[in-house]
């Protein structure tokens, strides 16, 4: 296997996670449960967008066809997107959104923590910068999980339902294939099993503090990393890419 190509897969999938999740965040803008929270969520969205931009620029470099982050975001089709099914799930109510972000943030945080020691120079620098942002995301969303879990009866029920429903999309973060094995061997990415153990530890700790149940279901959905998505993604891309595709000769800067 070619190292460059394996990196391209990984970097694209990470960039797509950030891009697609930021798209969902922007759907909340102006509709948040309180003004202060609207502002906090926009901050998270801006961090994710910035991360998506640097990752997809790097993906373009690795690909070597002269494409930049905008080309990657606006000119690929559904099957070429490699984001997790988790991040493309609709926002639902605020508990659904928080549960989705929380599971992703725990993964994102521990992954970046390890990427600080990656053999890839870009990823080391990227992780160094992004970990500060993501530490804040994780703090923000885990606090909301705790508040909902240990808040009112209604919020407890809503967050437990949200967690149970979205749980099946968490397994995809830790699925291994020959690319991940290869990248791990090359020191680009961390050991997936160890990452999973850290994720489970943190999730258990927060759910415990929230008086919430750790889901028992073991079935896990997959497909996003292979470009096989839910029906959601097509609509998101239709929205995102509408202008660029309608006016292929236009520049927007």
């Amino acid at each position: 296997m070619n190292l460059n190509e394996a990196k391209l897969q990984f970097v694209t999938s990470q960039g797509d996670d950030a891009l697609i999740l930021s798209h969902r965040v922007t759907e909340w803008c102006g509709h948040g449960p309180e003004l202060e929270e609207d502002i906090a969520l926009s901050n998270i969205g801006l961090d994710l967008l910035g991360q998506a931009q640097s990752l997809l620029n790097y993906a373009g470099e690795l690909e070597g066809k002269g494409r930049n982050a905008d080309d990657m975001a606006y000119k690929r089709i559904e099957r070429e997107f490699k984001n997790l099914l988790l991040v493309e799930q609709p926002n639902g109510n605020y508990a659904d959104t928080i549960a989705k972000h929380f599971f992703y943030d725990v993964y994102h945080y521990f992954l970046l923590l390890d990427l600080k020691n990656s053999s890839d120079e870009f990823l080391r620098g990227f992780a160094e910068k992004s970990i500060k942002e993501v530490a804040y995301h994780l703090r923000h969303t885990s606090q909301w999980v705790i508040r909902f879990g240990d808040g009112t009866e209604e919020s407890h029920e809503k967050i437990q339902t949200a967690i149970n429903q979205i749980w099946k999309y968490t397994g995809e973060m830790f699925m291994k294939d020959e690319i991940s094995d290869f990248l791990e061997k090359e020191g680009v990415i961390p050991n997936i099993d160890a990452l999973k153990a850290k994720w489970e530890g943190k999730v258990r700790e927060v759910l415990n503090e929230s008086t919430l149940k750790y889901p028992e279901t073991t079935f896990m959905a997959k497909g996003g990393r292979d470009g096989i998505h839910s029906e959601n993604l097509g609509y998101m891309l239709t929205d995102m890419q509408y202008l660029v595709r309608t006016y292929p000769d236009a520049k927007w800067d």
Partner: peptide
Amino acid sequence: TAIENARDV
């Protein structure tokens, strides 16, 4: 939370 919101605001 007020401190965190203040950071964002």
